[in-house]
């Protein structure tokens, strides 16, 4: 199926020494929940802002359901609802007025029934006649979500939706995200919290220093999380893995001095002892061995450390 958002070669340079995005490619599938993980300043918000039309790209193209975001911006933007990270709302307008205003901006005729449904879903109905400035931070966040949903978008961007949000709102929000997804809406959210991405997403992407380091099915990622690597350091350089060890699917490091064996740590049989016996049989010596487990947490933490 054709991806709903297709990003290719996207770069954004704010100044010669501040590159926010570097030649980023990403395809977002119709109807999925994609979580974008990354430390502060990784480029997540810049990416979203470009897709939504708030920031001009330096190079590269983005299409939304086949519509280029620049030459065919009307069709592209009509499909998208955006909930930005910052709590930016009007102050003096009522909840009802500001949410209805958003619908108008997106070119749709007034539809009080839809606005009512959105407000009820977000438990804002009782506050519909309140001025926004009288609302708490959590309520303002709900208003921003209501504005994004006012024009019935096909795609919803949630930039750090749970930053500074209490448990109740977080639960409500996830319930809403699931409801939207089951109605066919594609959802892209950014977060710092790995647990959140694990709980919600179908796929997870990690952005770091403007590059998409990894994007993978959550299930696949979880499988990788459950696997371990056994690294064998070799005293003698090896040109290739001997054919009789092919069954272990070993990988050889570039310089031929280390071999990696990946296995399922949760499995009943890890195959380690068989491998070691077969190695001895093939006459391959090793001077050291270690096992590692790469977790998303670890990848993430490494990235953050690199960034400092």
């Amino acid at each position: 199926m054709q991806p709903i958002i297709s990003i290719s070669g996207l770069s954004k340079t704010y100044s010669p020494d501040f590159v926010a995005l570097r030649h980023l490619d990403l395809e977002i599938r119709r109807g999925e929940i994609l979580a974008l993980l990354g430390p502060n300043g990784a480029g997540k918000t810049t990416l979203i802002s470009i897709v939504c039309g708030i920031v001009n790209p330096s190079s590269g193209t983005v299409t939304v359901d086949g519509h280029d975001i620049i030459s065919d911006y009307r069709a592209a933007r009509s499909m998208i609802g955006l909930v930005p990270q910052e709590l930016t709302t009007d102050a003096f307008e009522t909840v009802w007025a500001t949410v209805s205003h958003s619908r108008g901006l997106f070119g749709l005729r007034p539809n009080p029934a839809h606005i009512e449904k959105v407000l009820r879903d977000l438990t804002l109905w009782d506050k519909r006649d309140s001025k926004i400035m009288q609302l708490s931070g959590g309520m303002k966040r709900r208003v921003m979500i209501a504005k994004a949903l006012s024009h019935e978008p096909q795609i919803l961007f949630l930039d750090e939706p749970t930053a500074g949000v209490d448990v109740e709102l977080r639960k409500d929000m996830w319930a809403m995200v699931r409801r939207l997804r089951s109605s066919g809406v594609t959802i892209i959210l950014t977060t710092h919290y790995i647990a959140e991405a694990e709980e919600m997403a179908d796929r997870i992407g990690v952005i770091h220093k403007g590059e998409l380091v990894l994007v993978e099915e959550k299930a696949e990622l979880m499988r990788k999380l459950g696997s371990k690597q056994l690294i064998l350091e070799l005293p003698d350089r090896l040109d290739a893995i001997p054919a009789d060890l092919a069954a272990y699917q070993l990988s050889l490091s570039g310089d031929g001095t280390a071999m990696t064996y990946t296995y399922d740590a949760q499995g009943e049989r890890t195959g380690i002892s068989a491998l070691l016996q077969d190695l001895a049989r093939s006459g391959i010596q090793f001077k050291d061995l270690q096992t590692t487990q790469s977790s998303l947490e670890e990848i993430f933490v490494d990235l953050v450390r690199d960034g400092q």
Partner: peptide, 14 residues
């Protein structure tokens, strides 16, 4: 100034 312009910029308006 308030940042609410994000909505105008992301809306399908010329």
């Amino acid at each position: 100034f308030l940042g609410t312009i994000y909505e105008l910029l992301s809306a399908p308006v010329s």
